[in-house]
């Protein structure tokens, strides 16, 4: 079972890296926000899976905080994006 969990963790890391690449270089600013959001949700899953991999699953609280802050950050980006003039 440990091997499967380790494989899942590594695969989620790869997905996180791809989402990060999208956030680094994006055709429009909305694509960048999309990449950041996807990175956040995959991080939540990574924390949950790695907790079981390391044998200390009682740290799921951190995953909850991640999900929450990710959502609030997203709303804040959308809210204040309308105030600034686009450059692209």
């Amino acid at each position: 079972m440990t091997e499967i969990l380790a494989a899942a963790c590594i695969a989620i890391l790869v997905v996180m890296a791809i989402a990060l690449a999208r956030a680094f270089k994006a055709p429009t600013v909305y694509d960048r926000i999309l990449g950041v959001n996807m990175f956040g949700t995959k991080t939540v899953l990574f924390i949950a899976a790695s907790g079981y991999l390391m044998g200390r699953p009682d740290f799921l609280d951190i995953a909850i905080v991640y999900a929450l802050i990710n959502f609030i950050g997203m709303v804040a980006v959308l809210r204040f994006f309308e105030y600034t003039s686009p450059i692209e």
């Binding site: 429009t28 959001n37 949700t41 949950a48 799921l60 995953a63 909850i64 959502f71 959308l78 309308e82």
Partner: peptide, 27 residues
């Protein structure tokens, strides 16, 4: 831990589509 996982799942299922919807609408 089961309760926390269910909470995370519900939270993600509510917030992630909402965020995508708001983003697409803003775009």
């Amino acid at each position: 831990n089961t309760a926390k996982l269910v909470f995370i799942l519900l939270f993600l299922l509510v917030t992630s589509p909402t965020a995508s919807h708001a983003l697409a609408k803003s775009a």
